[in-house]
């Protein structure tokens, strides 16, 4: 890792101005992903603008009954927040299923949104990666792909988006507030991350000088009847092979509201729009759940090692919706 300039920002305006003024400057939050990537040689900023002292660490009630989460709220504080646990249990569970207690104490909400893939070929400088080095090729294709994506892939990139939190946020219709010297704008979470296409290095719609300042969760009845199910290779402290964020409201045996998002299987936090379409208004039965899962997974593209994810995702979706229908919320 090369050395770099370090500045502590004391207000948001100063932070965004500092990064805008210097092309090689980056925001530094908890550092859990960025420092690792810098040490691995994937990232090499000239300057880090430390934003952790900015007053963006509150969780506030919104007038419509939603929540506004400051970008610097630590993951552990988010998961422990009573309103999140009660009204958005899927989010608390998703955050708690990621990383470890120590990392969650460091990692921020904003940083979690911008986590980069854990693809081994992305990390390893000795192999090709279009995401790390545009145009260099994709080492994963023809290599080890067991953890790679089946949805949203392109011939350029199969890398899975690693965040658990984002999967829950995708299900919750979260909106991301960003600020720059040009002002404030709001980006729906579902529009924040890009599909790789032939420009996998462009991971989000944010400009380099835009700072995530908050995430807003709209109020929704379905958010409270929700849970997160993560399937992985160890009982804890591992990235998802498949994860499902789901919310379900059933009345008179029929689905009146459903939210479904997938992790571990896609190149970005994946809202299961097709599945939701199939399910809405359908009877809350395993058959419907299966049909919904099949509809969502119909476009899956598999590699040599990750074909199992189609079946695993199907089963995990069905099991999670079934559990919501029978046992209700994880709150």
């Amino acid at each position: 890792m090369k050395d770099f300039g370090y500045r502590v920002a004391v207000d948001v305006a100063g932070a965004v101005a500092a990064v805008a003024a210097e092309p090689g400057a980056r925001f530094l939050g908890g550092g859990t992903n960025l420092v690792d990537l810098m040490r691995s040689g994937v990232e090499h900023p000239d300057t880090l603008v430390d934003i952790t002292r900015l007053p963006l660490d509150a969780v506030d009630e919104l007038p419509d009954g939603g929540l506004r989460i400051g970008a610097l709220v630590r993951n552990s504080d988010l998961a422990a927040h009573p309103a999140v646990r009660r009204r958005y249990p899927v989010l608390a569970q998703a955050v708690l299923s990621g990383a470890s207690g120590q990392l969650r104490n460091m990692a921020t909400v904003g940083g979690n949104l911008l986590q980069r893939t854990r693809c081994a070929y992305f990390y390893d400088q000795a192999t090709a990666c279009n995401r790390r080095e545009p145009g260099s090729g994709c080492g994963a294709i023809g290599g080890f792909t067991r953890t790679h994506a089946i949805l949203g892939t392109s011939p350029s990139c199969l890398a899975t988006h690693p965040s658990d939190m984002c999967v829950a946020l995708a299900a919750l219709d979260a909106v991301v507030e960003v600020e720059s010297v040009r002002g404030t704008r709001r980006v729906p979470l579902l529009d924040l991350h890009r599909l790789p296409g032939d420009t996998p290095h462009q991971e989000t719609v944010l400009e380099p000088d835009e700072l995530v300042t908050a995430v807003e969760l709209p109020a929704a009845e379905v958010a409270a009847v929700s849970r997160y199910r993560k399937v992985r290779d160890r009982a804890s402290y591992a990235f998802a092979l498949v994860s499902v964020a789901a919310g379900l409201v059933v009345r008179d045996g029929a689905v009146v509201a459903v939210r479904l998002a997938l992790g571990g299987v896609a190149t970005k936090p994946w809202r299961a729009v097709e599945a939701e379409r199939v399910l809405t208004g359908a009877p809350a039965t395993e058959d419907s759940f299966r049909a919904a899962a099949d509809a969502e997974l119909a476009t899956a593209v598999v590699q040599e090692d990750n074909g199992f994810k189609v079946e695993l995702a199907r089963r995990t979706i069905v099991a999670t919706l079934h559990r919501l229908a029978t046992e209700g919320s994880a709150a």
Binding site: R118, A120, F144, A235, Y237, A238
Partner: peptide, 21 residues
């Protein structure tokens, strides 16, 4: 098998048991 290079040379993708296991 194409290169002879170890692709999970770390403790996050080489899964040793954790407490919960």
């Amino acid at each position: 098998p194409r290169t002879g290079r170890i692709m999970n040379a770390n403790l996050s993708e080489y899964h040793v048991p954790v407490h919960a296991d």
